[in-house]
Amino acid sequence: MVDPASPPIGPDEVWIRVSIARQDLCLQQGSELRKKYLVSTARAGPGELNGSGCTPRGWHQVRAKIGGHEPLGAVFVGRRPTGEIYDEALAVRYPQRDWILTRILWLSGLEPGRNRLGERDTMRRYIYIHGCPDSAELGQPGSHGCIRMRNEDVADLFERVPVGTRVVISE
């Protein structure tokens, strides 16, 4: 369900709806569902505070798209490709790494006081929609705040949405 207080969605507008309860991401065009993906949101649940490890709720936009020419499984650190491709040997070598793979859709909050500015700023928290290892469980909370997707799925979504695409994250 779209928040009635939000700006209206045009009939041709492409936008993203993330459900924390269902652990899914829906690509919409107006009121029509175009594609549904399984995701994993924060293990710590929903929340907006800096340092919380929670997935922020409310209206956002895709602020930046990163990694469009990288191969599936490309590893990112600090939003930059490392030149590595994820595999089990790399996972063993770096067991504490929070793996950000394939593509990044960096989110920015659109609601001052809720998910933008001050102690509740989605962009400054580096909240992304991104790829994860194939071994990561989706369909249940498990991330550090971001929205994790299968590598093939995030690459597909990346190609379908432009910078500026609105994203609503709800419980």
Rank of each mutant, 00 (worst) to 15 (best):
Q23L: 02
V168P: 00
P162E: 01
I20Y: 10
L49H: 14
E119C: 04
I66S: 13
R125G: 07
L117P: 01
S170H: 09
V62G: 11
C146Q: 13
I100Q: 07
R150Y: 08
R116C: 05
P112Y: 02
D87S: 12
R34Y: 03
L110E: 08
D156N: 04
C54M: 14
T102E: 02
P81L: 07
V161L: 01
A64R: 15
L90R: 04
T55F: 09
D87P: 03
S143R: 11
M123G: 04
G51E: 01
P46L: 15
C132G: 11
Q140F: 12
Y94V: 00
G45I: 03
G53H: 09
R103Y: 02
L110D: 01
E171V: 00
E171Y: 09
A44P: 00
A136K: 12
C132R: 13
P7W: 13
E32F: 07
S52W: 11
E32T: 11
V163F: 04
E137G: 10
V14A: 09
L107A: 06
T102R: 06
V167Q: 05
A5R: 15
H69V: 09
V14T: 15
S108G: 09
H144M: 01
L117T: 14
R63G: 10
I100S: 07
A136S: 12
V14Q: 09
D87A: 03
I85E: 02
G45A: 06
G83S: 12
L49I: 07
V77M: 14
H144P: 00
C26Q: 15
K36A: 10
G68A: 08
D87L: 10
D134F: 12
D24K: 13
R166K: 06
T55G: 01
F158G: 00
I104R: 03
V154D: 01
R166T: 00
R120C: 10
S52D: 08
G118V: 07
I127E: 07
T41M: 08
R125V: 02
V168G: 02
S52P: 09
R125H: 09
V2A: 10
E32V: 09
E137T: 09
P141Q: 08
E111G: 05
R57N: 15
G47T: 04
I16L: 15
A74I: 10
S31G: 08
P112E: 01
P95D: 02
E84S: 02
G109N: 11
F158K: 01
W106A: 04
V75H: 01
G139M: 08
E84M: 12
P56T: 09
Y37E: 00
R17Q: 12
K65H: 06
Y128L: 08
R166V: 01
G47S: 06
P7R: 15
F158C: 05
Q23P: 03
A42H: 06
S19Q: 11
T122H: 03
Y86M: 05
Y126F: 13
S143L: 08
L90A: 10
E32W: 07
E159S: 12
G131R: 13
V62L: 11
T102H: 04
L33Y: 05
D3K: 12
E137I: 11
